[in-house]
Design a protein around this nucleic acid. Structure first.
Lengths: 162, 162
DNA sequence: ATCAGTGCAAAGAATTTGCATCTCG
DNA sequence: CGAGATGCAAATTCTTTGCACTGAT
């Protein structure tokens, strides 16, 4: 069976780029941290564990390249750094994110859910959609549960607190 | 009738901030360029026309403040700079954007359209949504039309081109 | 008089670029 | 071999911060 990395290799070759050890190491890190929304610096530190000679500039150049090839998507959650997220194989569109405003966790939604909305936008605004970015900001299930626990405690403590 | 700027003034005061001339000038620029997705630098240059002594740092500080007060939303279209978009008065959620990958134009969608999707996300992922960011990337109606015109020309020119 | 707000310049952080050197195809 | 890729350091770009000063209440 053809591995994920082999297919990425082919994509590089198809666009006449070389598969250098540095690029391979970078891709492997991305594959091993698929759900982690790594920044360039994060990727750099992880790649460095296996290929210590690599430079940060190379990581930036590789991520930029992978972004062009649509192997990764560059995303920005508003915290000053770009993050790089592997695109699901065969996914027509980019997946969505749930950003928790309490704990900062970022979860992924692979389901598209936007078909209806996109149909409306395409027809009503006459806009040919090629891709999308959808992020929800709110309270994740974990923080939600935590708050409920504290809420129970809070009921008892209310008399003492300010 | 109470003006938009008066209401922003009240919001500032409610949070015990002053509406200084610099802040007022900044807000006015935002009001006058409501659809323009200005960067901090853009705002700075525009404010400078009316209040030449203002410093860039003050603009950054004001925009940050307005962002905290939810008067503006800070957005990022992936071009390295943050942009600041006035929130519609009374809008529960942030509006959406259409970014044209041909000409770079950014149009706004004030309609929410996400009610159904949000209901699904809230129940299926148990995530309490507080806000969202939705951007579509594609070809805007203007570029679309332009391309069709060129397409017609193209049919005639095809024999000559590479 | 106080204290938030300001302007300026310097600092900081993220990313890009120039260039000599190396290496994949 | 030779174009493309790399590593390093310097340069850029965007944004934040320190600090002395100003201006309202």
């Amino acid at each position: 069976m053809e591995s994920r990395i082999d297919r990425i290799k082919k994509q590089l070759h198809a666009a006449s780029y070389k598969l250098t050890p540095q690029r391979e190491a970078t891709v492997r890190v991305l594959l091993e941290h698929e759900e982690d929304h790594l920044s360039a610096e994060d990727v750099y530190l992880l790649v460095k564990e296996k290929a210590p000679e690599i430079g940060l500039a190379t990581v930036y150049r590789t991520l930029e390249l992978l972004n062009e090839l649509k192997v990764v998507d560059k995303i920005n959650f508003g915290d000053g750094v770009s993050r790089y997220d592997l695109r699901q194989e065969g996914a027509a569109h980019f997946h969505h994110h749930l950003v928790c405003i309490e704990c900062g966790a970022v979860d992924e939604i692979q389901e598209d859910l936007l078909d209806d909305v996109e149909a409306i936008v395409e027809s009503r605004w006459n806009f040919k959609i090629k891709d999308h970015r959808l992020t929800f900001h709110g309270i994740c299930s974990r923080c939600h549960m935590k708050q409920e626990e504290e809420g129970e405690k809070g009921d008892l403590e209310k008399q003492h607190a300010e």
